[in-house]
């Protein structure tokens, strides 16, 4: 598969747009999935996934062909998602930890503008609820959790995508998992 992708990329580098269409075809669902889980909204996910493909196309000559293309592509997409999430936030100090919560800061508090009341949560379908809880995670935990449990990528690859040391990736997955456990304990 990698050899196949690399052949396409070589053609794209020579200016062949059709070859790029095949690449989009190949990765569209995975990339859309990452964006959707990160942003919790189909419309925005489509927007960002498209933007990620466009950036990949424009900057294709910076891609190192000795590496995995999907890693590079996912990296572009997660960065765009994180940017988008942060832009939506008001500008008080977001990194401040919320009192009485461990590892949770203002990001998580306002991930969704208003927290839904208990009864509302109980009425949600399981999948809807899971997506809601994922979108309440702080963005840095969210990216790690999505890549680990939804894309099911190995830790080493996640560390490359997020440009973080392996240990940091593990910590984020642990914290994200723990936060989700608490959030979902009443399900």
């Amino acid at each position: 598969m990698d050899a196949l992708v690399n052949k396409r990329i070589k053609r794209v580098m020579k200016g062949d747009q059709d070859a790029f269409a095949e690449i989009v075809e190949l990765y569209q669902h995975q990339l859309f999935q990452i964006c959707y889980r990160m942003l919790g909204n189909r419309h925005e996910a489509e927007d960002i996934a498209q933007e990620a493909f466009t950036r990949a196309y424009v900057n294709i000559h910076t891609f190192d062909q000795n590496r995995k293309f999907s890693t590079w592509l996912y990296r572009i997409a997660t960065n765009l998602c994180i940017d988008r999430i942060r832009k939506k936030k008001p500008d008080y100090h977001l990194d401040a930890e919320v009192r009485g919560t461990e590892g949770l800061n203002m990001y998580s508090k306002i991930a969704n503008e208003e927290e839904l009341p208990e009864e509302e949560l109980m009425r949600m379908e399981v999948q809807e609820r899971v997506q809601y809880e994922i979108s309440r995670l702080p963005d840095k935990y969210r990216a790690a959790i999505v890549l680990k449990y939804i894309e099911e990528l190995p830790l080493a690859e996640i560390s490359e995508i997020l440009d973080l040391p392996l240990g940091t990736v593990k910590t984020r997955i642990h914290r994200g998992r723990e936060a989700l456990r608490k959030q979902l304990s009443n399900l």
Binding site: Q131, Y149, E152
Partner: peptide, 12 residues
């Protein structure tokens, strides 16, 4: 298991 079961969405 819940997170993994979140049905896989497809691009439009």
């Amino acid at each position: 298991a819940f997170v993994q079961s979140a049905s896989h969405v497809q691009a439009p």
